[in-house]
């Protein structure tokens, strides 16, 4: 299999291309003419301060927000994403910062929320969903046992594994992770890192939004840095240091050695 870098060098279109995306809220441009792309088996980090527009940009892809201008290409073909259902139809799965779980439902109900398994009579098949849930959790987090309790009774790590299971179960090709380790302890953070490597090896493209420069340096192939709604630049992680990334985030300057942002 080709690596992401070789794919990028070839003529193949990227898995996802967000071209010249703009979105404004009440006159304030939250995202201003930003372009990023993602190849199969690649992890692209999105970095920036709070309010830099990285979460807003990615919500255009996940269907939570509507773009004002720009286009979304998947495998080179333009697509319209009006809502989360459209995103799912394009095999885009999102793990939100806020986890987006219904606290009053159990793990299986959350895993299948919006895509329930049904019996031939059209009724939801709780037993089948619990069985599937036990299978995938056995793979992701073998210690997980609280299948009949609402997820409000789970720890941060357990909740995160439910959120990840939901994204992984439905064969995502494009995965968006919005600060997936923000609420986690060191052990659980490692679990997420292992999972990202595993998914990458399966050829899934991942957008990873994070504050933590070290995590990005460790997990990502490329990083796109945003500041005040604009793209500062996209760099190859292999070509930059922590300090280079930090100066991009803080000063909004691209290091001379790195490739310039695509216009």
């Amino acid at each position: 299999m080709q690596t992401a870098k070789e794919l990028r060098a070839s003529d193949q279109p990227p898995l996802v291309a967000l071209n010249n995306i703009s979105i404004a809220f009440g006159g304030i441009k939250a995202v201003d003419d930003v372009s990023v792309d993602l190849y199969p088996g690649e992890v692209v980090g999105l970095l920036g301060h709070n309010g830099a527009g990285k979460s807003t940009l990615i919500k255009v892809l996940s269907g939570a927000y509507q773009k004002d201008a720009g286009e979304i290409l998947i495998n080179g073909k333009p697509v319209e994403i009006h809502n989360p259902r459209d995103a799912r139809a394009n095999n885009i799965e999102t793990i939100y910062q806020t986890l987006a779980l219904a606290d009053n439902l159990d793990a299986a109900s959350n895993l299948f929320l919006g895509r329930e398994l049904v019996t031939p009579f059209g009724l939801v098949d709780d037993s089948a969903m619990e069985a599937e849930c036990r299978k995938i959790m056995g793979r992701l987090n073998p210690n997980f046992q609280k299948f009949s309790e609402p997820v409000s009774a789970l720890s941060g790590g357990q909740r995160q594994s439910v959120a990840i299971a939901r994204a992984v179960y439905f064969n995502a090709r494009i995965l968006i992770m919005d600060e997936p380790t923000a609420a986690l302890g060191p052990h659980e953070t490692q679990m997420v890192a292992d999972l990202i490597h595993q998914l990458k090896a399966q050829g899934i493209g991942i957008f990873l939004i994070d504050h933590d420069v070290h995590a990005v340096m460790e997990l990502c192939d490329r990083a796109s840095v945003m500041k005040n709604g604009k793209l500062v630049g996209t760099v190859d992680i292999a070509d930059v240091t922590d300090d280079d990334l930090l100066s991009m985030i803080i000063l909004g300057k691209t290091p001379g050695s790195a490739e310039e942002a695509p216009s």
Binding site: P84, S109, G114, G122
Partner: peptide, 28 residues
């Protein structure tokens, strides 16, 4: 009771009540 427990409609009613944003983001 059947609607509440065994249909998608019921599942979505309870999910929306538990976390409206999560329900929306799940494509409901």
């Amino acid at each position: 009771t059947l609607i509440a427990r065994r249909t998608r409609l019921g599942r979505y009613i309870f999910a929306t009540g538990g976390n409206p944003d999560a329900a929306e983001l799940s494509g409901i």
